[in-house]
């Protein structure tokens, strides 16, 4: 029968026996996945978001998208890009959000005035 001491010894031996390498490759790999050091990263973020917004706006204006589909696509693109670690930060989402809200307000306003 195995007693607690036997189990303790087996466990300690099992857990202590996990040899990992010195981690040089691991460390290098982690460092390469960090976001670049960039002082004006928020400007880049907003410009990037604005670029995507304008691209989508053009697609919309070419009648490929309805306003609803445009907003939906904007939110999906924003979310997907943010999921890609550092390609897209919260600033981009904020920019998207503000631009999206502006569109909604504009069209609501126009609908009210025209009615």
């Amino acid at each position: 029968m195995m007693d607690n001491n036997d189990l303790d010894q087996m466990m300690e031996s099992f857990l202590a026996d996990e040899h990992v390498d010195n981690g040089e490759a691991f460390v290098a790999n982690v460092l390469t996945t960090l976001p670049p050091v960039y002082k004006w990263w928020w400007v880049q973020d907003i410009v990037q978001a604005f670029g995507i917004f304008v691209a989508l706006l053009i697609v919309w204006k070419l009648k490929f998208l309805t306003p609803g589909a445009f907003l939906l696509l904007m939110s999906v693109v924003g979310e997907k890009l943010q999921a890609h670690n550092h390609l897209f930060s919260h600033n981009n989402l904020m920019t998207f959000g503000v631009l999206g809200a502006a569109i909604v307000i504009y069209y609501t306003y126009r609908a009210v005035v025209e009615s």
């Binding site: 996990e18 990992v20 981690g23 691991f26 460390v27 982690v30 460092l31 960090l34 050091v37």
Partner: peptide, 17 residues
């Protein structure tokens, strides 16, 4: 980044294990 690298080197082994 060098400071982060030092932290990484220090703690990578227990976390990976």
């Amino acid at each position: 980044r060098e400071a982060f690298e030092s932290l990484l080197k220090k703690y990578q082994a227990p976390i990976r294990a």
